[in-house]
């Protein structure tokens, strides 16, 4: 086990902690950049210059994309709900578990530091990915998660070739671009990065007598029909109820409520 690699892996993990704990998007971007630049160095033997160049350029591209995205919205994010000490402790525990478990899970001569950093980054990334409440944090979390997975792959199966490094850099850059676009969409809608579940439209419930009258005037009824104005009001109410019921059913399907303007779109 190389102390040099362990130190680099630890700094990369610290970068990820910074990225996920910071309430300032620019500091979070700095943390992502640190993790992305150092991650390819956690490899034994050290990667070829071409691989390193590809990964560093990719890392800078990711940081640049996040940075210009933040210029549109301002840097304020919610940061971590559990605070940086808790994140750091979780990362440290995962890091140590990865380091200690290396000999148990692989027989290859792969760097234990990569497995340690990969485990730590996956644990860190999963927190905002599972609880996706804020678009910017989700983007950073997905970046950290994917980076952690590539490190885990190095720790389990050895260093990737040039082509896989290019694919890694491209995937991370595209992910950053998609993430920041979604964050900007959320910000344009509500002035912050929160991913809001739109509130359902209030359901208009008809009073029992109105509902009874609607049934009574149905086909085959002997009760005279109400005047046109009243009839159309009843029809409208019926339509509203039906649309709301459809939306409620749909919201049940997908686990969230329908958008507020959905009815208008239809």
């Amino acid at each position: 086990m190389s102390p040099f690699l362990v130190a680099i892996a630890a700094v990369a993990t610290a970068g990820a902690v910074l990225a996920l704990a910071a309430r300032d998007g620019r500091i979070a971007t700095l943390g992502v950049a640190v993790a992305l630049v150092l991650a390819p160095l956690v490899s034994d033997p050290l990667p070829e210059p071409a691989v390193l160049a590809v990964r560093v350029i990719g890392a800078l591209l990711v940081a640049y994309v996040l940075w210009i995205g933040l210029r549109e919205t301002g840097p304020a994010t919610r940061g971590s709900a559990i605070g940086w000490p808790a994140l750091a402790l979780a990362a440290a525990a995962a890091f140590m578990a990865g380091l200690a478990g290396h000999s148990l899970v692989t027989a290859r001569e792969t760097p234990a530091a990569a497995l340690a950093a990969g485990t730590a980054l996956i644990v860190l990334g999963l927190i905002p990915v599972i609880r996706a409440r804020e678009a910017f944090r989700l983007a950073v979390g997905l970046l950290v998660l994917l980076l952690g997975i590539t490190l885990l792959r190095v720790g389990l199966a050895g260093s990737p070739g040039v082509l896989e490094s290019v694919a890694t850099a491209a995937s991370l850059a595209l992910l950053a671009a998609a993430g920041i676009v979604i964050a900007n969409l959320a910000h344009a809608d509500a002035g912050d990065f929160a991913l809001r579940t739109p509130e359902p439209e209030p359901v208009r419930r008809r009073p029992p007598d109105e509902a009874h009258r609607a049934r009574a005037h149905g086909p085959g009824s002997e009760v005279p029909a109400p005047p046109p104005d009243e009839a159309s009001a009843t029809d409208r109410a019926s339509t509203t109820d039906r649309a709301s019921a459809t939306d409620r059913a749909s919201a049940t399907d997908t686990g969230d409520a329908p958008p507020a303007d959905e009815g208008a779109r239809r």
């Binding site: 997905l142 998660l145 792959r153 389990l156 199966a157 979604i182 507020a260 959905e262």
Partner: peptide
């Protein structure tokens, strides 16, 4: 159409994409 649901829906799609790809990579590496 810029509905309020759009960022949430896109975020869920992106999450599914990364988690699925990540699971595959971990499986292959394992």
């Amino acid at each position: 159409e810029r509905t309020r649901a759009l960022p949430l829906v896109l975020a869920r799609d992106l999450r599914a994409t990364v988690v699925a790809g990540g699971l595959g990579i971990v499986a292959a590496a394992g």
